[in-house]
């Protein structure tokens, strides 16, 4: 177990990649704090972790509200006494369409979760990590933005903002033994990407196989949530101690910069 007794907060832990990350951290021995807006959805992740013999705490949290974030940190501290790991995974796909048709509300809603929520979580967790002179922060971004994706300007801008936040925070907290990295997943296997591929195939009048090729890289396959979770474990473990300020692509070779 590579993360034995580490206290880890995972935001967006109720589904998809976040759920898999939380489960993997628990398997590696971490005491996981599950955050997301809706309690009911978090319970599913909690059940999986408990079934696997892991330890977790459910804290329904709207990460766009500062008082909710500070409450999440207070509750984590009162349950476990410390915070070792923060996985900022919460994200939204944002409004889609040509930039000139994106509403201001849609733009702001995307940034509120993907960037401001991450800022607030970092802001309230970093003092604890600095004080104990150790900590690991992993921010989940995307290859979108690195790789242009038409009709997704709010999402791509917000995900690239995550990289800037990561690099700068890494230099602010490095001397306190805290590392900060970004993981950029590629198109990840699941219902959501299958729906996207089907829509693309229909829109372009091509086969599903052809449409899938737009989402795969050198290896010709989609990635799995487990691939992203494995990288999070690595970065949070002793093995990842000297990597910081990086953005790491887990995309099957679709993106290399």
């Amino acid at each position: 177990m590579r993360l034995k007794d580490k206290v880890a907060i995972v935001t967006g832990a109720s589904q998809g990649i976040g759920q898999v990350i939380a489960t993997r951290l628990a398997e590696e021995g971490a005491k996981v704090v599950l955050a997301a807006r809706t309690k009911a959805n978090l319970e599913a992740t909690a059940q999986k972790i408990t079934d696997g013999g892991g330890t977790c705490l459910v804290l329904p949290t709207d990460i766009t509200v500062e008082s909710a974030v500070s409450q999440m940190v207070v509750d984590t501290l009162s349950a476990h006494g410390t915070i070792d790991i923060l996985i900022n995974n919460s994200g939204v796909a944002g409004e889609m369409g040509p930039l000139e048709e994106i509403s201001l509300e849609g733009w702001e809603a995307c940034f509120a979760v993907n960037v401001t929520g991450m800022f607030l979580c970092c802001k309230h967790v970093v003092p604890i990590m600095k004080e104990k002179r150790s900590g690991r922060i992993v921010n989940i971004s995307s290859m979108t933005g690195k790789r242009p994706l038409a009709n997704r300007s709010p999402y791509s801008a917000s995900k690239m903002a995550v990289i800037g936040l990561t690099r700068t925070l890494a230099f602010e907290v490095g001397e306190y033994g805290v590392t900060v990295n970004t993981v950029c997943p590629g198109a990840t296997e699941g219902e959501r990407i299958r729906r996207v591929i089907a829509n693309e195939a229909e829109a372009l009048g091509i086969s599903l196989e052809e449409a899938e090729k737009n989402f795969t890289g050198a290896l010709g396959q989609l990635v799995e949530s487990e691939d992203t979770a494995s990288m999070c474990v690595y970065l949070c473990s002793e093995e990842g101690r000297h990597m910081t300020a990086q953005d790491i692509n887990v995309t099957g070779g679709l993106c290399w910069y």
Binding site: G217, D227, S230, N249, V250, G252, W256
Partner: peptide, 10 residues
């Protein structure tokens, strides 16, 4: 764990 990572420089 690294099976879907390629073309990268770390």
């Amino acid at each position: 764990a690294g099976s879907r990572i390629t073309g990268q420089d770390f």
